[in-house]
Design a binder for these strands. Sequence first.
RNA 1: GCCCUUGUAGUUCAAUGGAUAGAAUAGGUCCCUCCUAAGGAUUAGAUGUAGGUUCGAUUCCUACCAAGGGCACCA
Length: 542
Amino acid sequence: MIEIKQYISEVIHAGLAKLEIKENVLVEKSANSDFGDFSSNIAMALAKTLRKNPLEIAKMIQSELTIDKKIISDHSVTQPGFLNFRVAKLFYQKTVTEIIASADTFGRTDTGKGKNANVEFVSANPTGPLTVGHGRQAVLGDTIANILEWHHYDVTREYYYNDAGRQMRILGQSVTARYLDQVGQEGDFPEDGYEGDYIKTIAKEILERHGDGLSPEDRIFRTYAEELIFADIKNTLEIIGINHDVFSNEQTYYNTGAIDAVVEDLRNKNLIYESEGATWLKATALGLEKDRVYYKSSGEPTYRLPDTAYHRDKLNRNFDLIIDLFGADHADTYPDVLAALEALGIDIAPIRVLIHQFVTLLKSGKKVKMSTRKATFVTLEELIKQVGPDVVRYFFIMRSMNSHLNFDLDLAADQSEKNPVYYLQYAHARICNIIKNGAEKHLAVTGEFDSALLSDDAEISLIKVLTEFPEVMATALENMEPQGIANYLHHMSAEFHKFYASCRVITDDHDLSTARLNLITAVKIILGNGLGVLGVSAPERM
RNA sequence: GCCCUUGUAGUUCAAUGGAUAGAAUAGGUCCCUCCUAAGGAUUAGAUGUAGGUUCGAUUCCUACCAAGGGCACCA
């Protein structure tokens, strides 16, 4: 389909050349198929410079077009000056053969060939179970990684967490307090402590394993909590089909001296100063709004400093593309990190920052602020157990990352049986079943068939959708948004179900049956590949 | 107060500046002697407000209103 657009664009260019006009030509899919399959607004764009009615210009261009009837069967001019083109059936019919022949390569580009990409996502600190909110980022990140892999990038999925700061210290203190409670001592629960019941469970496990004589100073409270929580996080990710290749953490960068190096290198550039007992980054000198603290007066660094060291390291690992997927709360903070890196003379061009909006949790119709600390969350695991991984993934992929989406667990459970993902999976299962029935009647899909037999309206509409797949996948890569793929697959499934209702595949007509079996096999290939990229299963039966 | 997102059917979401604003769900009305009715057909229903740019605006700009996030020596 990309070729068709290009072909039309070239045809118009040639026409314009005869008229001695130079202008960029834009060809797009027609919104309404009554007008044709593609249209160009070139005449409207030229109206101003030529000082002519766009309709006249369109007619003028039309009369100069030289068109291959085997590709474009018909063209017309309509108000207010659109040039319309209808693609020949033959072109569509041939596409089915092409899809079956190229199978897994249909719709891929070589954009990522020989290139390495790093996608950092989830990156939740191990202070509690993953919530529905984290789920959004987890699914988005993994699917974006899949899209990159589809286009031949070699992808590293990375999880970075802060394990040296205040949050983990408070986690340890919270566990200590619960432990002391359980051994009958007065536990001093920290003010900003983690209130979830899982903290009590961890404390209980420590009690069972290590007895009641531990000192409140013992590091085991923190390390054991981190270990258990991380195991839980990894388990949750695994059941939704997500596996990170690399886990990196803040502590490493202290150990290797990378953090000191960042400060020293910036100091050499006069971008570090001390004030009120703290160490500051002179961010204003880098064009930012205000200076930022690197080391608090307590001597503890802020997250910003290790993050900078971490990104410096990531850039040094020579990725061609680095995706940072953050929640909206980070929108204001990454510019500091990028500015510091640039000041260090590092090329930050490979970095692409993606920001997604938050999930608002609704409980009995009311908004609840999700907080790990206050334990006001629905865990991702809970949700997956209730509705299944496919529904969870599709739920998040359907929405653009910019939408502030509302999440009501009761509603989600209620509606899970009507989840649109089943509509796609059902189409796939139906196809598999028909192919099975065909095989029983010794009808095989070989790619050898008379494509001209596929001329029913429902068949042509279905094939048209198939031809759009490469463009959908290319756009997904450009925008780094999986959403378009979900919309597309839904549209394709709808066309398939319509086709199913009006055209019977297995009949006494051997040739027609074979042609239709090839057609639905092409649908199965694309649906299967698309669902694969979304990380959603493509069942053979439901 | 300043900055970033976002306001579209009753609800949850779509729509590279284009033609009649799409789905899903909820509500009407139909269709299983036929490859899975987890389906199909059909009906009804929406661009926050006020300006501006443009041949053309849901899309771009300005103001206002509303929601979420940020403006920490929290991450």
